[in-house]
Nucleic acid binder design. Structure first.
Length: 278
DNA sequence: CTTGTGTCCTGTAGGC
DNA sequence: TGCCTACAGGACACAA
């Protein structure tokens, strides 16, 4: 669930809590959540390092450490990062980092699908191949209509599937892809290579806009409450969703009588307004 | 290369 | 009430 806006929100909130802190201890409570390196090298490598900055690439959160190291987190579906008092227990905690200030950074992940990696900054191992192949950030200038047109040209897969491909546009997940397609007025099942130039133009803009809006509203906390801010609060973009999670409800556009439909595309549930999206 | 399907993982919702 | 199944979804492996 954490997509680009959620990870960016987490980054902004965690930054003042982590930068300047030194990791004085680490406990790996579940080994398979550490993606790299294996064995005790992860714990040995991370202890003693100080946090210098927090970055983000797509859905990855990058915790820069001194001496050229970097902790890379991917929260996948249900991962959570929280700074807690040193004694406090956290449900589903997989890895805990004790901090010099007396608190701890807790990485909790009920489904154990999320991962944390310790690498040389910018030097990603095979286990993190996704980082090397990742496409541009849709909210940066190097992502524009011309680029998207080039990447979609000739492709026969549904446009929805390609929006989820991190090699084309990183950071986009199921929620924001549906919302971007709604804003662009494009049905998710349309074959990507068949979109007209004005449609791709709208899509490129909609993607950037919806992700920026998501950041502005601190991300989307759905009913399950899995995504939370590091301080425990919720995002508020869920109140602004046009289609995601609104199956059977009326389209939000003024005067539109459409009812939001849900359909499985590429194994994922996909939402759209049959009136607004062509 | 492209596309579609299965797998990982576990908590939860819904059916009977 | 309790059991069972389907589903949630991001990334990746793999088959065609």
């Amino acid at each position: 669930m954490p997509e680009l806006p959620e990870v960016e929100t987490i980054r902004l909130r965690l930054r003042p809590l982590l930068v300047g802190q030194r990791i004085v201890g680490a406990a790996v409570r579940r080994k398979d959540v550490v993606g790299f390196p294996g064995g005790s090298a992860f714990r040995r490598g991370v202890v003693g390092r100080a946090v210098t900055e927090l970055g983000r690439r797509g859905k990855y959160l990058l915790v820069q450490l001194d001496q050229g190291f970097e902790l890379v987190f991917h929260l996948r579906l249900s991962g959570r990062l929280e700074v807690v008092g040193s004694g406090r227990e956290v449900e589903h905690e997989r890895v805990r980092f004790e901090l010099s200030g007396g608190k701890a950074l807790s990485f909790a992940e009920p489904r154990a699908l999320g991962r944390v990696y310790l690498v040389r900054a910018g030097n990603y191992p095979q286990a993190l191949a996704g980082m090397l192949k990742m496409g541009p950030e849709p909210i940066h200038e190097d992502f524009d209509a011309a680029y998207l047109r080039e990447r979609l040209r000739g492709r026969t897969a549904p446009v929805k599937n390609l929006l989820l491909d991190q090699r084309i546009a990183c950071g986009v997940g199921n929620i924001y892809s549906d919302e971007a397609l709604y804003r662009a007025g494009i049905r998710p099942l349309r074959r990507a290579g068949r979109l007209g130039r004005p449609e791709v133009d709208r899509l490129a803009r909609a993607l950037a806009d919806v992700l920026r809006d998501g950041i502005k509203w601190c991300g989307t906390t759905l009913g399950d409450g899995r995504y939370r801010l590091p301080e425990g609060g919720t995002g508020s973009f869920q109140e602004r969703l046009a289609v995601f999670g609104r199956e059977g409800e009326r389209c939000r556009r003024r005067g539109c009588k459409g009812v939001v439909r849900r359909q499985r595309i590429g194994g994922r549930s996909t939402h759209f307004c049959p009136v607004c999206q062509k």
